[in-house]
Write a protein that binds this DNA or RNA. Structure first.
Length: 560
DNA sequence: GCCGTTTTCGGCCCGACTGTTTTCAGTCG
């Protein structure tokens, strides 16, 4: 029995290392994934797993932890090690064993890089990554994998930060003596990838609050602390920042802690600087603060230092789109392709959300893996939707498809079929490796098809996984404007594509944008909040958003 | 290894295409 308590991160690292070693053997891949899942679960827990074990708690109550992993965790906590792990480690080659310190690296892929480039160490791996040789020889995705494995990355997706925020906030209020807590920083600005989860807190005893946070998830390393802020390394990787509310009144602290550096600089320039802020206070709210300096309230999502301060002074800030402005969904899959609910189930769910219409956009034939819909089956779906519209009250089902843009820029259904649809969503799903010029030409050619309406997930990026294909977005926007085509903000939390920056560009060019979920089940309609976040960051008003229009007006937009 | 459960073992997507491949792993939704 050891006395030193292990942090959740240290326990998770051992399980991840075991998964890593198992993956180099002919082991059941589902077993490997089980260990990885359990490790990930432990990293997000606010309770100390070490304490849970010593208190004889039932770990199998947590999702992803069953009898075997539960006893492995007990062994780790009580002996400080894991026999199975040590055994595999002693049998592994030096190259593989040395990867244990990098639990995010996939040994099989690393070994491929080693072989290809004739190297055998992490140091060499780093060098070849920095020199661009890995990307050159093995592609962008491999380079991305290695980069995330060897560099200390703190980034997490916004939707993961949402879960984490709830847990940390509850901990601060219930266990760390905070009287008032609010999330601030890039999280509150709804930035799609978060490196630092920040809170403004009001407390009578800040040092005690820091001490309590150091016990979060067993042990959370304190990176820096002053009498007004503290920075921690959460076991899930992301940084946790806590700022003590020092200004009289809550409003000024929220302004200071929410805006980006660029926003705060522009704000200071427009209002006489931070000294003037303190002198003019206290402010109970941010509205009071902005109002005092003759500025309209600036929504957190806009506080990036674009032109929001000038606009707030002129009174020309857009009234940002909100969830209640959304009248329908324009990108949704069903059991006809790779969705898990039928057309009727999706329609019922859309109606329950108060939507007026839902477009059914199943995949086209080329996308085999998603069971793309044959021409015959699309005809059947068209007739089925006609029947459904005769029967269903309170929701209109739109006939559509997510049509593949083929490598040569042609669309994956013939015009005679496309003509029968109310509109189309057209997307690139193949040949991501084309060069920027070719990829751009491919999309421009597709937009010349008279049935092209909405460009689906314009860059194909998967946040923290894949950079997306390269396109000249300005040329594509220009073409869309000429040809009466539109964009979507795909709300899938790991796409968010268009990005806020690209959506801002499209909007400035006067091209309307759909906020779509790409839902593959009724549950996924809920992800629209992430698309709304990015639309608001792009400064979109409801008049800029395609699916804020009633169907009659939308139908006019779709005429070409 | 976990889960759910028609409570004892099967499912946990998956299948065609791509590439600079040296005979198959990675990739796309």
């Amino acid at each position: 029995m050891t006395d030193a308590a292990l942090s959740n991160a240290e326990i998770a690292d051992r399980l991840a290392a075991l998964a890593q070693l198992l993956s180099t053997q002919k082991e059941n891949p589902y077993k490997i994934r089980a260990y990885q899942r359990a490790a990930a679960k432990i990293r997000t827990m606010s309770e100390s797993v070490d304490e849970l074990v010593r208190d004889d708690a039932d770990l199998t109550a947590y999702g992803g932890i069953g009898a075997a992993i539960s006893s492995a965790i007990r062994e780790i906590v009580l002996t400080g090690t894991l026999g199975k792990l040590e055994k595999l480690r002693s049998q592994a080659s030096a190259e593989v064993a040395s990867l244990s310190k990098y639990p995010r690296l996939d040994p099989k892929r690393v070994l491929r890089v080693y072989k290809k480039l004739g190297i055998a160490s992490i140091e060499a791996l780093r060098e070849r990554l920095d020199s661009g040789e890995i990307e050159g020889a093995l592609g962008a995705r491999m380079a991305q994998h290695v980069r995330q494995g060897v560099t200390e990355s703190h980034a997490i997706l916004l939707y993961r930060a949402d879960e984490l925020r709830e847990a940390v906030e509850e901990f601060l209020l219930a266990k760390a003596g905070a009287r008032r807590v609010e999330a601030v920083g890039e999280y509150r600005r709804r930035v799609e990838v978060i490196e630092e989860l920040a809170f403004l807190v009001e407390t009578a005893d800040f040092p005690a609050l820091i001490a309590r946070l150091e016990r979060y998830g067993g042990r959370t390393p304190l990176l820096e602390a002053t009498d007004r802020h503290a920075l921690f390394a959460l076991s899930s990787g992301v940084r946790l920042r806590v700022d003590r509310a020092t200004d009289p009144g809550w409003g000024l602290g929220m302004v200071r802690c929410t805006g980006s550096a660029r926003h705060l600089k522009k704000l200071a320039a427009a209002t006489g600087g931070a000294r003037a802020w303190t002198a003019a206070g206290p402010f109970d709210s941010e509205e009071a603060f902005y109002g005092h300096f003759g500025l309209a309230y600036i929504a957190p999502e806009l506080r990036e230092g674009h032109d929001e301060v000038e606009r707030a002074a002129q009174g020309t800030l857009a009234v940002l789109v909100t969830g209640s402005d959304i009248r329908g969904e324009l990108h949704a899959h069903t059991t006809s392709s790779d969705g898990s609910h039928t057309v009727e189930q999706m329609a019922e769910a859309a109606r329950a959300l108060g939507y007026e219409y839902i477009g059914i956009t199943d995949h086209s034939p080329s996308l085999k893996i998603a069971r793309g819909v044959s021409v015959d089956d699309l005809w059947k779906q068209i007739r089925q939707i006609d029947q459904l519209n005769g029967r269903l009250k309170g929701i209109r089902v739109l006939k559509s498809a997510e049509v593949d843009i083929l490598a040569d820029g042609s669309l994956d259904y013939r015009d005679e079929v496309l003509r029968e649809l109310d509109y189309t969503v057209c997307s690139v799903h193949s040949r991501f490796g084309l060069g920027k010029a070719e990829q751009t030409e491919r999309i421009l050619r597709a937009m010349d098809n008279r049935y092209f309406r909405i460009l689906g997930h314009a860059t194909g990026r998967l946040l923290l996984k894949r950079p997306g294909y390269e396109i000249d977005i300005e040329r594509v926007i220009e073409k869309a404007k000429q040809n009466g085509c539109f964009f979507e903000i795909n709300s899938s939390p790991d796409r968010l594509d268009l990005s806020a920056d690209n959506a801002r560009l499209a909007n400035q060019a006067g091209v309307k944008i759909a906020i779509s979920t790409d839902a593959h089940s009724t549950r996924e309609f809920g992800t629209i909040r992430y698309g709304l976040d990015q639309a608001r960051r792009a400064g979109l008003a409801k008049t800029d958003v395609l699916n804020c229009l009633p169907w009659t007006e939308l139908a006019r937009c779709f005429k070409r």
